[in-house]
Amino acid sequence: MTETNHIYPIFDRMLTRADKEELLGQRGAMIWFTGLSGSGKSTIAIALERELHQRGILCRILDGDNIRSGINNNLGFTEADRIENIRRIAEVSKLFVDTGIVTIAAFISPSNDIRRMAADIIGQEDFLEVYVSTPLEECERRDVKGLYAKARRGEIKNFTGISAPFEAPAHPALTLDTSVLTLEESVNKLLALILPRIGK
């Protein structure tokens, strides 16, 4: 195909994903944590990143703090903004995964449709959905940010688990309930899932 009729000619000259993965000695993958606020998503993600790093695996965490303060700082919490938030996260994640990086996302992402959209963008074969299924009562008991209390008082609208629904994944790659599993147990289950897929 010549450049005159190729709309994106630069892609013919760019290094491939396989080139990047060979350089890193690992395969890219998307570990997508979903669950209620306070379920333990970020805590597990951070512990997983440290464990993978110690094994020489290049990874990157994406969470609300580093996304909402940067690439998505113009978005609110309307339904349309929540969808756009996840769409942008998925597009950024795809770039990381295509570079051979193990990418870890920790977002409530409350509906099956929104998570399916993310998986479709990133690629189903690279997308590992991990459901942190910690019960609402335990999440609310932890409530380190006081968000559930504010939602109960009506100070936060459309709060997932209180005034907005959360759809549990039908077929997650892994389910972790941090009310019964220790952090170490959760990470070990994740390693058993991830390591064979990334070639380490």
Results as ranks from 00 to 15, higher is better:
Lys20Met: 11
Ile108Phe: 07
Gly154Val: 02
Asp81Gln: 00
Ile83Lys: 09
Glu185Ile: 05
Ile46Gly: 12
Glu84Leu: 10
Met14Val: 11
Glu22Trp: 07
Pro196Leu: 00
Ala151Trp: 02
Thr134Glu: 04
Leu190His: 03
Pro165Lys: 11
Ser109Val: 02
Ala29Ile: 12
Ala45Ser: 12
Leu62Trp: 00
Arg153Val: 07
Met117Trp: 09
Thr99Arg: 14
Arg50Cys: 08
Leu176Met: 00
Asp12Ser: 15
Ala106Thr: 06
Ile122Pro: 01
Lys41His: 06
Trp32Asp: 05
Ile31Leu: 13
Ala105Asn: 09
Leu136Phe: 13
His6Thr: 15
Tyr148Lys: 01
Ser93Trp: 04
Ala105Ile: 01
Glu84Thr: 11
Ile44Ser: 04
Gly35Arg: 01
Leu191Asp: 05
Thr16Arg: 14
Val132Glu: 04
Ile101Gln: 06
Ile122Ala: 01
Tyr131His: 15
Asp98Pro: 10
Lys41Gly: 00
His171Asn: 15
Leu147Ser: 03
Glu137Ile: 13
Tyr131Gln: 05
Arg88Ile: 07
Val97Gly: 00
Arg55Ile: 02
Leu95Thr: 09
Lys189Arg: 15
Asp65Ile: 05
Leu75Tyr: 04
Gly25Trp: 09
Val187Ser: 03
Ala151Tyr: 06
Phe127Pro: 00
Pro110Asp: 09
Val187Ile: 11
Pro169Thr: 11
Lys157Leu: 12
Thr160Ile: 01
Lys157Thr: 14
Thr78His: 12
Gly40Tyr: 01
Ala80Trp: 06
Asp12Asn: 15
Pro169Tyr: 10
Ile46Phe: 15
Gly64Gln: 07
Ser186Leu: 10
Leu23Trp: 12
Ala119Leu: 11
Gly199Cys: 09
Thr175Cys: 10
Trp32Val: 05
Glu22Tyr: 08
Ile10Met: 13
Lys189Thr: 08
Pro110Trp: 03
Ile10Leu: 15
Asp19Cys: 10
Leu176Ile: 14
His6Gly: 06
Ile31Lys: 08
Ile61Pro: 00
Leu128Asn: 14
Gly70Cys: 09
Gly161Gln: 06
Thr103His: 10
Arg13Ile: 12
Ser109Gln: 07
Arg82His: 03
Gly154Ala: 06
